[in-house]
Write a protein that binds this DNA or RNA. Structure first.
Ligand SMILES: [Zn+2]
Ligand SMILES: [Zn+2]
Ligand SMILES: [Zn+2]
Ligand SMILES: [Zn+2]
Lengths: 133, 133
DNA sequence: ACAGCTATGTTATATTATAACATTCCGAAA
DNA sequence: TTTCGGAATGTTATAATATAACATAGCTGT
């Protein structure tokens, strides 16, 4: 892992929500990172290697939260609109059904995206406990 | 449906692939549409009403290809990187598994995205029939 | 006529991503 | 050791996507 990749990866591991490339850029200015391309290049490598996932729904990036999700299962992200956290899951059954749907249609899969947007359990209970008046 | 919405919707229905907001803007200049916001506003309404879907993976928009997909099933899009076409499907089994995964976790679902990127059957056979040397 | 609402239009700006080109670094081959 | 070549890095500029802020027009019910 190169130096810039390490900086970006560490930052994403420490973050509790997806960060945009420009969030990362701002956070790493003092590490000598000054231009968007430096961030995008590091992200491209990290994503390619499965250490980081791109979250399409929010144009953001998160460090992989699972061991070896680089297998052939798709990751499922639940994205809370309130706390902005992203939780990563895998589900063999969903993945195999998607795969067989693709196979049935002769579609050659390169990449799958499953993202669910909504409110996480924590945020629901938090709001129930302290409702706004 | 307002005039701008009609223009945008018709264009998307005629298109054979997802269009970006700026594709739409360029195509509708002669209809009097001059600014991105006019397009984005029409798209927001159309998406809200389920007539149009946003494709996160390509920052594009397509007219709904199914009758009444506005039920509670999620749409599954297969996106061909070669011909750029988007095919829309529903699958009750995949949807219900996603839903029960969310329920188990206490996650309150607002929106689901399932997008599969790859090569469609047509493009595979086309390339097989006429390979590049 | 008036108030309130929706749609529309316009300009400017924010956010996300890539192109094009120059430079540096480092290991392998000569 | 020198030199070659690839990988990484840095820099500037620009493309592509999306929204903010404000002004205007039209329509509806009172
Ligand atoms: Zn992962
Ligand atoms: Zn939350
Ligand atoms: Zn649909
Ligand atoms: Zn195709």
């Amino acid at each position: 892992m190169t130096q810039n990749e390490t900086f970006v990866y560490q930052l994403l591991c420490d973050a509790d929500r997806p960060l945009s490339a420009y969030n990362i850029l701002d956070a790493l200015r003092d590490k000598g990172i000054r231009a968007p391309l430096q961030v995008y290049r590091a992200l491209a490598k990290l994503v390619e290697r499965g250490a980081v996932h791109r979250i399409e729904s929010v144009n953001g990036f998160v460090a992989c939260q699972l061991h070896d999700c680089g297998g052939n299962e798709v990751s499922i992200f639940m994205l809370c609109t309130q706390c902005e956290r992203a939780h990563e899951f895998t589900n063999i059954s969903i993945d195999s059904r998607l795969q067989s749907l693709s196979n049935d249609l002769g579609f050659q899969v390169a990449h799958k995206v499953i993202e669910i947007t909504g409110r996480c359990a924590d945020c629901q209970t938090a709001q129930t406990a302290a409702p706004k008046h």
